[in-house]
Amino acid sequence: MTLTDPSSSSAMHLNFPPSTGSGVMHSRSITGVHVHPVALFSILDHFLRRNDGQQRVIGTLLGTRTESEIEIKNCFAVPHLENEEQGQVQVDMEYHRNMYELAQKVRPDEVIVGWYATSPELNTYSALIQDFYSRETAPHQAVHLTMDTSVDGSKASGLGVRSYVSSPLGASPKAENCVFLPLPTTLLYSAPEHSSLNLLSSTSISSPLSDMEALAASLKQVQSQLDRVLGYVRSVLSGERQGDKAVGRYLMDTLSVVPAGMDDTKLETLFNTHLQDVLMVSYLANVVRAQAEISSRLTLLT
């Protein structure tokens, strides 16, 4: 995974004096970018549906910003045209405005934070588009997120995500001259999203599971992991393998979490009372369902 380039976390942040050229005044530099999976998935989908012959696609990133960090929560595609011969780039601004208006109706708190492109390359057009988005996000800085969509096995950077902020460059600031400063980028997801991502990434499952099946699968997984650890510990104890100190420390920490020395009968009563509650609730729920069913049948009888 190349979400965070190891070198980018130690990126040097250069603060240029606020320039009047692009109308951007940034008092404080952004130190990190968090991306939600939805945005990345949408970018991939947009790339798959690109027009014939299009090298890359771009779009607007929506999200929220705090003092120093940006959270990219959503994005939408924007049609654009790069003209190689004339060195021009056209972004459908009308489309961008309309789409933003619609997005605002659903999530008023998600504002424009920048733009994405599906090529790791930063060129003159990137600078021009960055200039446009900087005006949209003024007085804040615009973030540029690139996603490498080439799944070439020879390159290790496949499907890597990077993000940048820009600073104008040169004695007299021009729109097409700027330097892109890399930012540390992390993936951010909530608990519900985590479970859905796990479901999607498990290759063996093709349809959603019921709660019981999911629980069984989790238990089996834990069981197999315990077996693996047990096998490892045994082989270390019998001297077949050299023990890894880090693994040993992890095991120690984990085992110390288990409440030891608790009275067995106390534990037993705790479990039993809890179980009684649960069974009672289950009984009640089934009674309610039966009543509902009877009630609906009675309506049909009269």
């Binding site: 608990a191 519900p192 999203e193 479970s195 859905s196 479901l199 959603p208 599971l209 019921s210 709660d211 999911a214 629980l215 989790s218």
Partner: peptide, 10 residues
């Protein structure tokens, strides 16, 4: 249900 760890869509 999702927050409990199992995403279900019907």
């Amino acid at each position: 249900q999702s927050a409990q760890g199992n995403t279900v869509v019907k």
